[in-house]
Measured scan of single mutants.
Amino acid sequence: MAAGGDHGSPDSYRSPLASRYASPEMCFVFSDRYKFRTWRQLWLWLAEAEQTLGLPITDEQIQEMKSNLENIDFKMAAEEEKRLRHDVMAHVHTFGHCCPKAAGIIHLGATSCYVGDNTDLIILRNALDLLLPKLARVISRLADFAKERASLPTLGFTHFQPAQLTTVGKRCCLWIQDLCMDLQNLKRVRDDLRFRGVKGTTGTQASFLQLFEGDDHKVEQLDKMVTEKAGFKRAFIITGQTYTRKVDIEVLSVLASLGASVHKICTDIRLLANLKEMEEPFEKQQIGSSAMPYKRNPMRSERCCSLARHLMTLVMDPLQTASVQWFERTLDDSANRRICLAEAFLTADTILNTLQNISEGLVVYPKVIERRIRQELPFMATENIIMAMVKAGGSRQDCHEKIRVLSQQAASVVKQEGGDNDLIERIQVDAYFSPIHSQLDHLLDPSSFTGRASQQVQRFLEEEVYPLLKPYESVMKVKAELCL
Protein backbone atom coordinates (compact mmCIF):
# COMPACT_ATOMS: atom_id res chain seq x y z
CA MET A 1 0.00 0.00 0.00
CA ALA A 2 1.38 3.40 -0.93
CA ALA A 3 2.48 5.77 1.82
CA GLY A 4 0.38 8.83 2.50
CA GLY A 5 -3.37 9.04 2.68
CA ASP A 6 -6.46 11.15 2.36
CA HIS A 7 -6.00 13.43 5.35
CA GLY A 8 -9.58 14.68 5.14
CA SER A 9 -10.97 11.16 5.47
CA PRO A 10 -12.12 9.64 8.78
CA ASP A 11 -10.23 6.53 7.69
CA SER A 12 -6.88 8.35 7.72
CA TYR A 13 -4.92 9.65 10.70
CA ARG A 14 -4.79 13.40 11.09
CA SER A 15 -2.81 15.22 13.76
CA PRO A 16 -5.06 16.31 16.65
CA LEU A 17 -3.07 19.54 16.73
CA ALA A 18 -4.63 20.48 13.40
CA SER A 19 -7.97 18.71 13.64
CA ARG A 20 -8.78 19.46 17.28
CA TYR A 21 -6.67 22.12 18.94
CA ALA A 22 -4.73 24.74 16.97
CA SER A 23 -6.25 27.88 15.47
CA PRO A 24 -7.21 28.06 11.77
CA GLU A 25 -4.71 30.86 11.18
CA MET A 26 -1.77 28.85 12.55
CA CYS A 27 -2.86 25.72 10.69
CA PHE A 28 -2.98 27.73 7.47
CA VAL A 29 0.58 29.02 7.89
CA PHE A 30 1.78 25.40 7.97
CA SER A 31 -0.56 24.19 5.22
CA ASP A 32 0.51 22.86 1.83
CA ARG A 33 -1.27 25.73 0.11
CA TYR A 34 0.67 28.34 2.05
CA LYS A 35 3.94 26.50 1.54
CA PHE A 36 3.68 25.92 -2.19
CA ARG A 37 2.19 29.33 -2.87
CA THR A 38 5.25 30.79 -1.12
CA TRP A 39 7.50 28.64 -3.32
CA ARG A 40 5.87 30.22 -6.37
CA GLN A 41 6.23 33.68 -4.85
CA LEU A 42 9.94 33.03 -4.31
CA TRP A 43 10.34 31.92 -7.92
CA LEU A 44 8.59 35.11 -9.02
CA TRP A 45 10.80 37.31 -6.83
CA LEU A 46 13.90 35.57 -8.19
CA ALA A 47 12.77 36.08 -11.79
CA GLU A 48 11.89 39.74 -11.17
CA ALA A 49 15.29 40.42 -9.61
CA GLU A 50 17.13 38.52 -12.35
CA GLN A 51 15.25 40.51 -14.99
CA THR A 52 16.07 43.81 -13.26
CA LEU A 53 19.75 42.85 -13.22
CA GLY A 54 19.77 42.16 -16.95
CA LEU A 55 18.98 38.49 -17.53
CA PRO A 56 16.80 37.77 -20.62
CA ILE A 57 13.45 37.41 -18.84
CA THR A 58 10.43 39.09 -20.42
CA ASP A 59 7.60 41.07 -18.86
CA GLU A 60 5.23 38.52 -20.36
CA GLN A 61 6.94 35.70 -18.48
CA ILE A 62 6.82 37.68 -15.23
CA GLN A 63 3.13 38.44 -15.70
CA GLU A 64 2.35 34.81 -16.46
CA MET A 65 3.98 33.77 -13.19
CA LYS A 66 2.10 36.46 -11.25
CA SER A 67 -1.20 35.32 -12.72
CA ASN A 68 -0.69 31.73 -11.61
CA LEU A 69 0.58 32.09 -8.04
CA GLU A 70 -2.69 30.70 -6.68
CA ASN A 71 -3.37 28.27 -9.53
CA ILE A 72 -1.85 25.20 -7.89
CA ASP A 73 -2.79 21.77 -9.22
CA PHE A 74 -2.07 19.70 -6.12
CA LYS A 75 -3.04 16.45 -7.82
CA MET A 76 -0.56 17.04 -10.64
CA ALA A 77 2.15 17.99 -8.15
CA ALA A 78 1.58 14.78 -6.19
CA GLU A 79 1.77 12.70 -9.36
CA GLU A 80 4.95 14.48 -10.43
CA GLU A 81 6.54 13.93 -7.02
CA LYS A 82 5.63 10.24 -7.15
CA ARG A 83 7.31 10.03 -10.55
CA LEU A 84 10.37 12.18 -9.82
CA ARG A 85 10.86 11.45 -6.10
CA HIS A 86 11.63 15.16 -5.66
CA ASP A 87 9.11 17.61 -4.24
CA VAL A 88 10.73 20.81 -5.53
CA MET A 89 11.12 19.59 -9.11
CA ALA A 90 7.55 18.28 -8.99
CA HIS A 91 6.35 21.81 -8.27
CA VAL A 92 8.71 23.35 -10.83
CA HIS A 93 7.03 21.16 -13.45
CA THR A 94 3.53 21.88 -12.09
CA PHE A 95 4.13 25.65 -12.08
CA GLY A 96 5.65 25.42 -15.54
CA HIS A 97 2.61 23.55 -16.83
CA CYS A 98 0.35 26.53 -16.08
CA CYS A 99 3.08 29.02 -17.09
CA PRO A 100 4.32 27.58 -20.42
CA LYS A 101 6.00 30.81 -21.53
CA ALA A 102 7.84 31.18 -18.21
CA ALA A 103 8.59 27.48 -17.73
CA GLY A 104 12.16 27.80 -18.98
CA ILE A 105 13.19 30.49 -16.49
CA ILE A 106 11.46 29.18 -13.34
CA HIS A 107 14.05 28.27 -10.67
CA LEU A 108 16.84 29.75 -12.81
CA GLY A 109 20.19 29.29 -11.03
CA ALA A 110 18.52 28.13 -7.84
CA THR A 111 18.73 24.98 -5.74
CA SER A 112 15.92 23.26 -3.86
CA CYS A 113 16.81 25.03 -0.62
CA TYR A 114 16.20 28.37 -2.29
CA VAL A 115 12.48 27.68 -2.06
CA GLY A 116 12.55 25.14 0.78
CA ASP A 117 14.65 26.96 3.34
CA ASN A 118 13.54 30.47 2.48
CA THR A 119 9.92 29.38 2.75
CA ASP A 120 10.64 27.81 6.13
CA LEU A 121 12.13 31.09 7.34
CA ILE A 122 9.12 33.04 6.08
CA ILE A 123 6.84 30.56 7.84
CA LEU A 124 8.84 30.78 11.09
CA ARG A 125 8.65 34.57 10.98
CA ASN A 126 4.93 34.64 10.25
CA ALA A 127 4.17 31.97 12.84
CA LEU A 128 6.06 33.98 15.46
CA ASP A 129 4.04 37.02 14.40
CA LEU A 130 0.90 35.03 15.21
CA LEU A 131 2.16 33.92 18.62
CA LEU A 132 3.40 37.30 19.86
CA PRO A 133 0.00 39.05 20.17
CA LYS A 134 -1.55 35.90 21.63
CA LEU A 135 1.05 35.81 24.38
CA ALA A 136 0.64 39.55 24.92
CA ARG A 137 -3.10 39.06 25.41
CA VAL A 138 -2.51 36.34 28.00
CA ILE A 139 -0.18 38.67 29.89
CA SER A 140 -2.71 41.49 29.65
CA ARG A 141 -5.55 39.36 31.05
CA LEU A 142 -3.40 38.14 33.91
CA ALA A 143 -2.22 41.70 34.58
CA ASP A 144 -5.86 42.78 34.98
CA PHE A 145 -6.40 39.85 37.33
CA ALA A 146 -3.30 40.71 39.38
CA LYS A 147 -4.19 44.39 39.64
CA GLU A 148 -7.72 43.65 40.85
CA ARG A 149 -6.45 41.25 43.54
CA ALA A 150 -3.16 42.93 44.41
CA SER A 151 -4.14 43.30 48.08
CA LEU A 152 -6.14 40.08 48.61
CA PRO A 153 -4.16 38.06 51.19
CA THR A 154 -3.67 34.37 50.57
CA LEU A 155 -1.62 31.64 52.14
CA GLY A 156 1.75 31.22 50.48
CA PHE A 157 3.24 27.78 49.96
CA THR A 158 6.82 26.59 49.81
CA HIS A 159 7.31 22.84 49.26
CA PHE A 160 3.48 22.93 49.04
CA GLN A 161 3.49 23.48 52.79
CA PRO A 162 1.98 26.60 54.41
CA ALA A 163 4.42 29.50 54.47
CA GLN A 164 4.16 33.28 54.93
CA LEU A 165 1.17 35.06 53.46
CA THR A 166 1.32 36.65 50.03
CA THR A 167 -1.50 38.09 47.92
CA VAL A 168 -3.43 36.55 45.05
CA GLY A 169 -2.20 39.36 42.79
CA LYS A 170 1.44 38.93 43.81
CA ARG A 171 1.30 35.20 43.10
CA CYS A 172 -0.17 35.96 39.67
CA CYS A 173 2.76 38.31 39.03
CA LEU A 174 5.10 35.33 39.37
CA TRP A 175 3.28 33.84 36.39
CA ILE A 176 3.29 37.12 34.48
CA GLN A 177 7.02 37.63 35.00
CA ASP A 178 7.84 34.30 33.34
CA LEU A 179 5.52 35.07 30.44
CA CYS A 180 7.09 38.51 30.00
CA MET A 181 10.47 36.83 29.63
CA ASP A 182 8.92 34.53 27.03
CA LEU A 183 7.44 37.50 25.15
CA GLN A 184 10.82 39.23 25.06
CA ASN A 185 12.52 36.04 23.89
CA LEU A 186 9.93 35.41 21.17
CA LYS A 187 10.37 38.98 19.92
CA ARG A 188 14.15 38.66 20.01
CA VAL A 189 14.25 35.39 18.08
CA ARG A 190 11.75 36.78 15.57
CA ASP A 191 13.81 39.93 15.00
CA ASP A 192 17.03 37.90 14.77
CA LEU A 193 15.72 35.75 11.91
CA ARG A 194 17.76 36.13 8.74
CA PHE A 195 16.86 35.07 5.22
CA ARG A 196 18.83 32.27 3.56
CA GLY A 197 18.74 34.29 0.40
CA VAL A 198 20.10 33.37 -3.03
CA LYS A 199 23.11 31.13 -2.38
CA GLY A 200 23.18 28.16 -4.78
CA THR A 201 23.88 24.51 -4.12
CA THR A 202 26.63 24.72 -1.50
CA GLY A 203 26.24 28.34 -0.50
CA THR A 204 28.96 29.71 -2.80
CA GLN A 205 26.60 31.43 -5.28
CA ALA A 206 28.61 29.84 -8.11
CA SER A 207 25.59 29.32 -10.39
CA PHE A 208 24.56 32.96 -10.11
CA LEU A 209 28.11 34.16 -10.65
CA GLN A 210 28.06 32.19 -13.90
CA LEU A 211 24.66 33.60 -14.89
CA PHE A 212 25.98 37.13 -14.42
CA GLU A 213 29.27 36.35 -16.16
CA GLY A 214 31.46 36.86 -13.11
CA ASP A 215 29.83 40.10 -11.92
CA ASP A 216 30.14 39.91 -8.11
CA HIS A 217 28.12 43.08 -7.61
CA LYS A 218 25.10 41.74 -9.50
CA VAL A 219 25.16 38.51 -7.50
CA GLU A 220 25.17 40.50 -4.26
CA GLN A 221 22.42 42.75 -5.58
CA LEU A 222 20.33 39.71 -6.51
CA ASP A 223 20.66 38.34 -2.98
CA LYS A 224 19.78 41.72 -1.47
CA MET A 225 16.80 42.34 -3.76
CA VAL A 226 15.16 38.97 -3.09
CA THR A 227 15.81 39.33 0.64
CA GLU A 228 14.06 42.71 0.67
CA LYS A 229 11.15 41.41 -1.42
CA ALA A 230 10.65 38.70 1.21
CA GLY A 231 10.48 41.32 3.95
CA PHE A 232 13.75 40.50 5.70
CA LYS A 233 16.27 43.14 6.75
CA ARG A 234 19.26 40.89 6.12
CA ALA A 235 20.32 37.50 4.85
CA PHE A 236 23.02 35.12 5.98
CA ILE A 237 26.37 35.89 4.40
CA ILE A 238 27.50 32.32 5.02
CA THR A 239 25.40 29.21 4.35
CA GLY A 240 26.00 25.67 3.26
CA GLN A 241 23.26 24.27 1.11
CA THR A 242 20.87 25.17 3.94
CA TYR A 243 20.69 27.93 6.50
CA THR A 244 22.33 26.77 9.72
CA ARG A 245 20.03 24.49 11.67
CA LYS A 246 21.07 26.35 14.81
CA VAL A 247 18.25 28.73 13.88
CA ASP A 248 15.72 25.96 14.48
CA ILE A 249 17.32 25.30 17.87
CA GLU A 250 16.97 28.96 18.80
CA VAL A 251 13.32 29.12 17.79
CA LEU A 252 12.21 25.86 19.39
CA SER A 253 14.18 26.60 22.57
CA VAL A 254 12.12 29.74 23.07
CA LEU A 255 8.91 27.82 22.41
CA ALA A 256 9.97 25.08 24.83
CA SER A 257 10.67 27.72 27.46
CA LEU A 258 7.17 29.10 26.90
CA GLY A 259 5.87 25.57 27.42
CA ALA A 260 7.63 25.40 30.79
CA SER A 261 6.04 28.69 31.86
CA VAL A 262 2.55 27.59 30.87
CA HIS A 263 2.99 24.21 32.57
CA LYS A 264 3.95 25.89 35.85
CA ILE A 265 1.04 28.35 35.68
CA CYS A 266 -1.55 25.70 34.89
CA THR A 267 -0.17 23.35 37.54
CA ASP A 268 -0.63 26.12 40.11
CA ILE A 269 -4.20 26.66 38.92
CA ARG A 270 -4.89 22.92 39.19
CA LEU A 271 -3.55 22.82 42.75
CA LEU A 272 -5.58 25.89 43.70
CA ALA A 273 -8.66 24.23 42.20
CA ASN A 274 -8.10 21.27 44.50
CA LEU A 275 -7.88 23.70 47.44
CA LYS A 276 -11.10 25.31 46.15
CA GLU A 277 -9.46 28.74 46.21
CA MET A 278 -9.51 29.33 42.45
CA GLU A 279 -11.03 27.71 39.37
CA GLU A 280 -10.72 27.97 35.64
CA PRO A 281 -13.94 28.75 33.73
CA PHE A 282 -16.53 25.97 33.89
CA GLU A 283 -19.40 26.06 31.39
CA LYS A 284 -23.01 25.57 32.49
CA GLN A 285 -23.39 22.43 30.36
CA GLN A 286 -19.85 21.15 30.96
CA ILE A 287 -19.51 17.61 32.37
CA GLY A 288 -16.57 16.88 34.65
CA SER A 289 -17.00 13.12 34.89
CA SER A 290 -19.28 10.55 33.28
CA ALA A 291 -19.57 8.75 36.63
CA MET A 292 -19.26 11.56 39.20
CA PRO A 293 -21.66 14.42 38.35
CA TYR A 294 -20.29 16.71 41.08
CA LYS A 295 -16.83 16.87 39.52
CA ARG A 296 -15.41 20.20 38.30
CA ASN A 297 -12.18 19.07 36.70
CA PRO A 298 -9.64 21.72 35.58
CA MET A 299 -9.75 20.27 32.06
CA ARG A 300 -8.30 23.30 30.26
CA SER A 301 -5.34 23.59 32.60
CA GLU A 302 -4.76 19.86 32.29
CA ARG A 303 -4.79 20.18 28.50
CA CYS A 304 -2.23 22.98 28.69
CA CYS A 305 0.03 20.85 30.87
CA SER A 306 -0.34 17.86 28.58
CA LEU A 307 0.54 19.84 25.46
CA ALA A 308 3.25 21.88 27.19
CA ARG A 309 5.10 18.66 28.00
CA HIS A 310 5.02 17.78 24.31
CA LEU A 311 6.28 21.24 23.39
CA MET A 312 9.16 21.04 25.84
CA THR A 313 10.36 17.73 24.40
CA LEU A 314 10.37 18.94 20.78
CA VAL A 315 13.51 21.03 21.25
CA MET A 316 15.51 17.80 21.26
CA ASP A 317 14.76 17.33 17.55
CA PRO A 318 16.57 20.42 16.21
CA LEU A 319 19.42 19.87 18.67
CA GLN A 320 20.07 16.44 17.23
CA THR A 321 19.39 17.55 13.66
CA ALA A 322 21.96 20.35 13.82
CA SER A 323 24.53 17.94 15.21
CA VAL A 324 24.29 15.54 12.24
CA GLN A 325 24.49 18.05 9.39
CA TRP A 326 27.72 16.82 7.78
CA PHE A 327 29.74 19.39 5.86
CA GLU A 328 27.43 21.48 3.61
CA ARG A 329 24.32 19.40 4.52
CA THR A 330 22.78 15.97 4.72
CA LEU A 331 19.14 15.01 4.37
CA ASP A 332 18.95 13.95 8.02
CA ASP A 333 17.07 17.17 8.64
CA SER A 334 14.27 17.00 6.09
CA ALA A 335 11.70 14.52 7.40
CA ASN A 336 12.30 15.52 11.00
CA ARG A 337 11.82 19.23 10.34
CA ARG A 338 8.56 18.61 8.47
CA ILE A 339 7.20 17.32 11.78
CA CYS A 340 8.86 19.19 14.63
CA LEU A 341 8.65 22.77 13.34
CA ALA A 342 4.95 22.61 12.58
CA GLU A 343 4.12 20.68 15.74
CA ALA A 344 6.01 23.14 17.94
CA PHE A 345 4.10 26.13 16.62
CA LEU A 346 0.71 24.42 16.54
CA THR A 347 1.27 23.28 20.12
CA ALA A 348 2.39 26.72 21.30
CA ASP A 349 -0.60 28.25 19.53
CA THR A 350 -2.97 25.85 21.28
CA ILE A 351 -1.66 26.42 24.79
CA LEU A 352 -1.74 30.20 24.35
CA ASN A 353 -5.32 30.14 23.04
CA THR A 354 -6.32 27.90 25.94
CA LEU A 355 -4.46 29.91 28.58
CA GLN A 356 -6.04 33.13 27.32
CA ASN A 357 -9.45 31.50 27.66
CA ILE A 358 -8.58 30.41 31.20
CA SER A 359 -7.23 33.82 32.19
CA GLU A 360 -10.34 35.57 30.90
CA GLY A 361 -12.56 33.58 33.26
CA LEU A 362 -10.57 32.75 36.40
CA VAL A 363 -12.82 32.51 39.46
CA VAL A 364 -11.50 33.27 42.96
CA TYR A 365 -13.20 32.20 46.19
CA PRO A 366 -12.16 34.74 48.88
CA LYS A 367 -14.11 33.03 51.67
CA VAL A 368 -12.25 29.77 51.13
CA ILE A 369 -8.95 31.65 51.07
CA GLU A 370 -9.92 33.47 54.27
CA ARG A 371 -10.80 30.23 56.00
CA ARG A 372 -7.46 28.66 55.11
CA ILE A 373 -5.66 31.74 56.40
CA ARG A 374 -7.57 31.46 59.69
CA GLN A 375 -6.43 27.85 59.99
CA GLU A 376 -2.74 28.73 59.66
CA LEU A 377 -2.40 32.36 60.71
CA PRO A 378 -2.48 31.77 64.49
CA PHE A 379 0.75 29.78 64.28
CA MET A 380 2.33 32.43 62.05
CA ALA A 381 1.27 35.19 64.44
CA THR A 382 3.02 33.71 67.48
CA GLU A 383 6.18 35.77 66.99
CA ASN A 384 4.13 38.98 66.80
CA ILE A 385 2.25 37.95 69.94
CA ILE A 386 5.51 37.33 71.80
CA MET A 387 6.85 40.75 70.76
CA ALA A 388 3.62 42.44 71.90
CA MET A 389 3.84 40.71 75.29
CA VAL A 390 7.47 41.81 75.75
CA LYS A 391 6.45 45.40 74.95
CA ALA A 392 3.71 45.06 77.59
CA GLY A 393 6.33 44.08 80.21
CA GLY A 394 6.39 40.29 79.90
CA SER A 395 9.38 37.95 79.70
CA ARG A 396 10.22 36.65 76.24
CA GLN A 397 11.22 33.23 77.57
CA ASP A 398 8.11 32.84 79.74
CA CYS A 399 5.88 33.93 76.86
CA HIS A 400 7.65 31.61 74.43
CA GLU A 401 7.02 28.64 76.71
CA LYS A 402 3.36 29.56 77.18
CA ILE A 403 2.91 29.87 73.41
CA ARG A 404 4.73 26.59 72.81
CA VAL A 405 2.42 24.67 75.13
CA LEU A 406 -0.75 26.26 73.77
CA SER A 407 0.41 25.75 70.16
CA GLN A 408 1.00 22.05 70.74
CA GLN A 409 -2.46 21.72 72.27
CA ALA A 410 -4.06 23.53 69.32
CA ALA A 411 -2.09 21.41 66.83
CA SER A 412 -3.35 18.27 68.54
CA VAL A 413 -6.94 19.44 68.09
CA VAL A 414 -6.30 20.00 64.37
CA LYS A 415 -4.39 16.79 63.68
CA GLN A 416 -5.81 14.29 66.16
CA GLU A 417 -9.43 15.46 66.37
CA GLY A 418 -9.89 17.11 62.97
CA GLY A 419 -10.99 20.33 64.63
CA ASP A 420 -10.22 23.96 63.84
CA ASN A 421 -7.14 25.77 65.02
CA ASP A 422 -8.16 27.19 68.42
CA LEU A 423 -4.83 28.70 69.46
CA ILE A 424 -6.20 32.23 69.58
CA GLU A 425 -9.18 31.13 71.68
CA ARG A 426 -6.73 29.52 74.13
CA ILE A 427 -4.72 32.74 74.29
CA GLN A 428 -7.89 34.79 74.78
CA VAL A 429 -8.89 32.81 77.89
CA ASP A 430 -5.40 32.64 79.37
CA ALA A 431 -4.93 35.36 82.00
CA TYR A 432 -1.20 35.51 81.29
CA PHE A 433 -1.95 37.19 77.95
CA SER A 434 -4.51 39.67 79.32
CA PRO A 435 -2.20 42.68 78.69
CA ILE A 436 -2.55 42.13 74.91
CA HIS A 437 -6.06 40.68 74.59
CA SER A 438 -7.27 43.97 73.10
CA GLN A 439 -4.50 43.83 70.46
CA LEU A 440 -5.20 40.34 69.15
CA ASP A 441 -7.47 41.41 66.28
CA HIS A 442 -4.81 43.81 65.04
CA LEU A 443 -2.05 41.24 65.48
CA LEU A 444 -4.07 38.77 63.41
CA ASP A 445 -4.98 41.10 60.54
CA PRO A 446 -3.89 39.14 57.42
CA SER A 447 -2.93 42.32 55.56
CA SER A 448 -0.19 42.97 58.12
CA PHE A 449 1.48 39.70 57.06
CA THR A 450 1.70 40.35 53.30
CA GLY A 451 4.64 42.74 53.44
CA ARG A 452 5.00 44.91 50.33
CA ALA A 453 3.13 42.48 48.06
CA SER A 454 0.52 44.97 46.83
CA GLN A 455 3.13 47.68 46.23
CA GLN A 456 5.29 45.18 44.35
CA VAL A 457 2.35 44.30 42.11
CA GLN A 458 1.68 47.94 41.28
CA ARG A 459 5.32 48.72 40.56
CA PHE A 460 5.85 45.57 38.49
CA LEU A 461 2.81 46.23 36.32
CA GLU A 462 3.63 49.89 35.76
CA GLU A 463 7.38 49.56 35.18
CA GLU A 464 7.68 46.24 33.38
CA VAL A 465 4.40 44.83 32.13
CA TYR A 466 2.47 47.75 30.65
CA PRO A 467 5.46 49.12 28.66
CA LEU A 468 6.08 45.63 27.25
CA LEU A 469 2.45 45.34 26.12
CA LYS A 470 2.23 48.79 24.51
CA PRO A 471 3.14 47.62 20.95
CA TYR A 472 0.21 45.17 21.08
CA GLU A 473 -2.54 47.60 22.18
CA SER A 474 -4.39 47.34 18.87
CA VAL A 475 -4.94 43.56 19.19
CA MET A 476 -5.83 43.34 22.88
CA LYS A 477 -9.61 43.06 22.46
CA VAL A 478 -9.56 39.70 20.65
CA LYS A 479 -11.26 37.01 22.74
CA ALA A 480 -10.19 33.37 22.90
CA GLU A 481 -12.99 30.95 22.06
CA LEU A 482 -12.57 27.23 22.61
CA CYS A 483 -14.69 24.71 20.74
CA LEU A 484 -13.49 21.76 22.82
Rank of each mutant, 00 (worst) to 15 (best):
residue 6 D to A: 12
residue 8 G to F: 15
residue 13 Y to H: 07
residue 16 P to G: 15
residue 21 Y to D: 00
residue 21 Y to R: 00
residue 23 S to V: 05
residue 30 F to M: 13
residue 31 S to M: 01
residue 34 Y to N: 13
residue 34 Y to I: 01
residue 36 F to P: 02
residue 38 T to N: 00
residue 42 L to H: 04
residue 46 L to Q: 04
residue 48 E to I: 07
residue 61 Q to G: 12
residue 68 N to A: 08
residue 69 L to Y: 07
residue 78 A to V: 11
residue 79 E to A: 08
residue 85 R to F: 10
residue 88 V to K: 00
residue 89 M to V: 03
residue 91 H to K: 01
residue 91 H to Y: 07
residue 98 C to L: 13
residue 100 P to Q: 10
residue 101 K to N: 12
residue 103 A to C: 11
residue 104 G to Y: 09
residue 107 H to R: 01
residue 108 L to T: 11
residue 110 A to I: 04
residue 112 S to I: 04
residue 112 S to V: 01
residue 121 L to C: 12
residue 123 I to G: 08
residue 124 L to Y: 09
residue 128 L to G: 07
residue 129 D to K: 12
residue 141 R to Q: 05
residue 156 G to K: 00
residue 156 G to S: 12
residue 164 Q to Y: 02
residue 168 V to K: 01
residue 169 G to I: 00
residue 169 G to Y: 04
residue 170 K to F: 04
residue 171 R to G: 00
residue 178 D to C: 06
residue 179 L to C: 10
residue 183 L to I: 11
residue 183 L to T: 13
residue 183 L to Q: 08
residue 189 V to M: 12
residue 189 V to Q: 15
residue 196 R to W: 01
residue 201 T to C: 01
residue 203 G to Q: 01
residue 203 G to R: 00
residue 210 Q to R: 14
residue 210 Q to V: 09
residue 216 D to A: 08
residue 225 M to R: 10
residue 228 E to S: 12
residue 229 K to C: 06
residue 235 A to M: 14
residue 237 I to T: 11
residue 241 Q to I: 01
residue 243 Y to W: 01
residue 244 T to Y: 06
residue 247 V to N: 09
residue 250 E to C: 10
residue 254 V to K: 09
residue 259 G to K: 01
residue 259 G to A: 12
residue 261 S to T: 13
residue 264 K to C: 06
residue 264 K to I: 02
residue 265 I to A: 11
residue 265 I to G: 06
residue 267 T to I: 13
residue 271 L to Q: 05
residue 271 L to W: 05
residue 272 L to G: 08
residue 275 L to P: 04
residue 277 E to C: 04
residue 290 S to E: 04
residue 296 R to Q: 11
residue 302 E to N: 07
residue 314 L to C: 13
residue 320 Q to G: 10
residue 321 T to R: 03
residue 324 V to G: 08
residue 327 F to S: 07
residue 330 T to C: 15
residue 331 L to R: 04
residue 332 D to S: 05
residue 332 D to V: 02
residue 337 R to H: 03
residue 338 R to M: 03
residue 339 I to V: 13
residue 339 I to T: 14
residue 343 E to W: 02
residue 345 F to C: 11
residue 356 Q to D: 06
residue 362 L to G: 04
residue 362 L to A: 08
residue 377 L to V: 07
residue 385 I to D: 07
residue 387 M to E: 06
residue 395 S to T: 05
residue 397 Q to L: 07
residue 398 D to C: 11
residue 398 D to E: 13
residue 423 L to S: 03
residue 424 I to F: 10
residue 433 F to R: 03
residue 435 P to Y: 07
residue 435 P to L: 07
residue 441 D to E: 13
residue 442 H to S: 13
residue 444 L to A: 03
residue 448 S to A: 14
residue 450 T to A: 08
residue 452 R to Y: 06
residue 453 A to V: 06
residue 456 Q to E: 03
residue 457 V to R: 05
residue 457 V to L: 04
residue 465 V to C: 12
residue 467 P to G: 09
residue 470 K to A: 13
